[in-house]
Write a protein that binds this DNA or RNA. Structure first.
Lengths: 143, 143
DNA sequence: GTGTATGCAAACTGTTTGCATGGAC
DNA sequence: GTCCATGCAAACAGTTTGCATACAC
């Protein structure tokens, strides 16, 4: 992962960047796929146990606000976040249930058409779940 | 709404049916569309304030278990439930953001194809949001 | 120097659970 | 008569917030 401090700093947009926030961004990149805030807190604590949970929550909110992170779903009652390259373009996510990896995928839902009784559709939420090529291969080997 | 006690009782499958559970089912039908547990509790309290929150949660779980109710999404951090006629068939939901009405809609997502990098898709979640014909008409009148 | 991010802990919300009791079957 | 559903309250998990302080700008 080639990621400079400058890259990390850009994640927060115009907000201030502290050492903690830089660590949080690094941990996000290390996790790679989708993660809960709790998992992110653990990852951050691996390099600095002094970072508070509230700080991580606030940083995640800031990152979500700047568009660098996205809320991609829910797992066991906690919000799932993931870094997504697709940015502001309309897209959805494929979540690997093996390793948590998240990829952007284009929207295959027929946009604003009315599927039932003349509903006027304004937005939709789509999340695909499955296995990435690696996990898919591992799965078929193990049975 | 033509719904006999017998209909209400069937909602719980083979589980026991108490007067509270019958009231909960009635309240569900009165609400009509999607609702949170909190809204359901309020509706139930309109006819019997003595019903406990835990009872409603337990009844909702039982109704979900029997397939009579479905979890159709999340609103403000609380789970959204709705009665759905579609039953066990694969389908999705259209939620009216005006009145909360929920309709089943057939799946327009191209099933198990791999949208990105050879992912093997096993399942997906789709929820459509918009305005039903009535709310859509009201909206355009009011601007 | 100003204002924002931090850390701590408490508060808050939605949901679940333990327990004694009443009611459905 | 047995066993499950109930009601109450406490417990619980995830998340947010208040406040004094440290630090980025």
């Amino acid at each position: 992962m080639t990621c400079t401090d400058n890259d990390r700093d850009k994640a927060f947009g115009s907000a201030r960047v502290s050492s903690q926030r830089r660590e949080i961004v690094s941990a996000t990149l290390q996790l790679g796929g989708a993660f809960t805030v709790d998992e992110l807190v653990r990852a951050v604590h691996a390099s600095d146990a002094g970072v508070g949970t509230a700080t991580v929550y606030r940083a995640v909110s800031a990152l979500e606000g700047s568009g660098w992170l996205e809320r991609v779903g829910v797992r066991d009652g906690s919000a799932l976040f993931a870094r997504c390259e697709a940015g502001a373009e309309h897209h959805h996510h494929v979540v690997c249930e093996g390793c948590g990896r998240v990829e952007a995928t284009e929207c295959t839902v027929s946009g604003t058409t009315a599927p039932a009784d003349g509903f006027r559709i304004t937005r939709h939420e789509v999340t695909l779940y499955g296995l990435c090529p690696e996990c898919s291969a591992g799965e078929s080997k193990q049975g």
